[in-house]
């Protein structure tokens, strides 16, 4: 199976991942190779096999509903690209 440049652009958009135009073809080629590899899976019949998402078949642990985290806002915002008055800044979304 092979992916076209259009496919790559579409996937890149879904992933919000900028790809330089000049590199699209090379990604299309690499991703097609990866898909060929993945297609080998069809060799094996997996009807009636239960999918395995995780090595430990365990339920998520529960804990008491009490506050355990301290307020780290200042610490976390100190490493943010742009903050003001305790808020993270991004380009204007609503005109």
């Amino acid at each position: 199976m092979s992916l076209t440049a259009d496919d790559v652009n579409k996937i890149a958009h879904l992933a919000r991942l900028g790809i330089d135009n000049q590199d699209i073809e090379s990604y299309a080629k690499d991703l097609s190779g990866m898909l060929d590899l993945m297609t080998q899976m069809s060799e094996l019949n997996t009807d009636n096999v239960e999918p395995m998402a995780h090595p430990m078949d365990q339920a998520q642990r529960l804990r008491a509903d009490v506050v355990t985290e301290p307020n780290n806002r200042d610490k976390f915002q100190a490493i943010a690209p742009q903050v003001e008055a305790g808020l993270y800044l991004v380009p204007k979304v609503i005109e």
């Binding site: 993945m38 899976m41 069809s42 094996l44 997996t46 096999v49 239960e50 999918p51 395995m52 998402a53 090595p55």
Partner: peptide, 14 residues
């Protein structure tokens, strides 16, 4: 076709 199939193979490997 991909993700669930891979998880089934993961079960067989396990």
């Amino acid at each position: 076709a991909y993700y669930i199939k891979a998880q089934k193979i993961r079960r067989l490997i396990s």
